[in-house]
Simulated assay, not measured.
Amino acid sequence: MKRLVIIGPGNIAKFHIQALKYFNFEIVGCISRDGSNSSHEFMSNYGKNKSEYFSDFNYMLHNTNEWDAVLISCPTINQFEYIDKLSKFQKPILVEKPVSLSIDKLVKYKNNSNIMVAFNRRYYESVKEFKTFVNLSKNIFINVNIPESSKSINEKSPSNFLPISIYENSIHIFDLINYLFDNVSWSNIISSNNSKLEFLSAHGLCKSGSPIVINLMLDSPENFSISANVGNKKVQLKPIEMYRLYEGFQIDEPSDQVPIRRYSPRVIDESYSESIMNCKPGFYNQAKTFSELCDGKKDITFPNINDAAKAIESINSISKLIKEI
């Protein structure tokens, strides 16, 4: 049994626990902010009363023999504080993204091998297939669409131009860009010419020399998507859970219903990331990897603090280009 402490028993924690339960994790501690009753409400859903777990962080710090691993799923503003206090124990930590919005804070722990960041989309089968195709291809052109919400644009953000949701939600996409295409150098952008950002198009080069374009369209009726064109083939994640491989065109001749000739990309392969054991996509395999980390398994790869720092750095690079316009 792996004795787990949850810090931040919110909705996302429920998805983690649903997956972690398949790998012999037992909740022995559940900690929420001072004055909150959420830890007790959360644990009651798992049939545990207050005598069966601890809920005090100071108790946790002074009784490290009573727990083996930690899930940190509290709001971003508090995540790094817990990392800072727990890292010295060198026990496995699974922390929700983005961990911190500060590069300076993140780089402090970029080499810690016991901290795993919950970029669960890396574990999608669709992403795995996409990465396999890209790794076997040369001279690719990459296009990314991010239709983020503008609702948080006035909330406190590291950027004066980008909404906080880019850092806390769309960071998944920036992590996938780094994961799929290695380091990207952003060179220039085109954006809406007014005080309120509505759209931007950022252009860059991957480490391989392949060009990449990100289209950020606030409130657009679009799906998040990543695509790569290679000759007469195109691979696409749209939404990220869905993988499609296109080759050539299918010609639809005029008909009574549609009196024009249409050229549609021909789908030759298609798959999607299914739920495993009724878990949210990506969470089961993410939990499996975290379990292996807890078991001390060697030679496993997982998203870490350095990956979170790289994703934040990519967003900051684009924000800097906006400022220079």
Rank of each mutant, 00 (worst) to 15 (best):
I27W: 05
I226V: 10
C294I: 07
K128E: 10
G282I: 12
R266H: 12
P75I: 11
M242D: 12
I142G: 01
T76E: 13
A228Y: 03
N143Y: 13
S201D: 10
K48P: 02
N278A: 13
S185L: 12
E26M: 11
V127P: 10
F141H: 13
D252L: 12
V70Y: 06
N145A: 13
E270K: 12
I6Y: 03
S314L: 01
N194I: 00
G10L: 08
N306L: 08
I173R: 03
D252S: 07
E241N: 09
D34V: 12
S159L: 09
S187L: 14
S210H: 11
K14S: 11
T301I: 12
N143H: 13
S126M: 04
T132L: 14
E313F: 04
F89T: 05
P303L: 07
M242P: 00
V70L: 15
D182T: 03
I251V: 15
Y46Q: 04
V134D: 01
M116S: 04
L20C: 08
L162Q: 01
F290M: 06
N58L: 08
Y53Q: 08
R262K: 13
S201W: 02
K85W: 07
Y167T: 02
Q250G: 02
K97R: 13
S192P: 03
F141I: 14
N111P: 00
I312W: 05
R261H: 00
S87I: 15
I27E: 07
N229K: 15
E155P: 00
A308V: 01
Q236P: 01
K151T: 13
I322Y: 02
N11H: 10
P303I: 03
F23C: 04
M1K: 10
F181E: 00
E125Y: 12
I171L: 03
E155T: 02
G231T: 00
D256H: 05
S317L: 13
F54M: 08
K280E: 09
S165Q: 06
E125G: 05
V144R: 04
Y179A: 02
F161I: 08
R244N: 04
F133S: 02
I166T: 11
I153K: 10
I77C: 03
S113Q: 14
F119M: 00
N45F: 10
H16M: 10
L293T: 01
K48R: 14
F80H: 10
E270Q: 14
R3L: 04
G47S: 04
I325G: 12
I72E: 05
N193A: 13
K85V: 07
M277R: 13
G296T: 05
Q236C: 14
P75N: 11
K151Q: 10
S126K: 02
N145E: 12
I214W: 01
F133V: 06
D175V: 02
P265K: 10
E270P: 01
I103R: 11
E270S: 15
E125T: 14
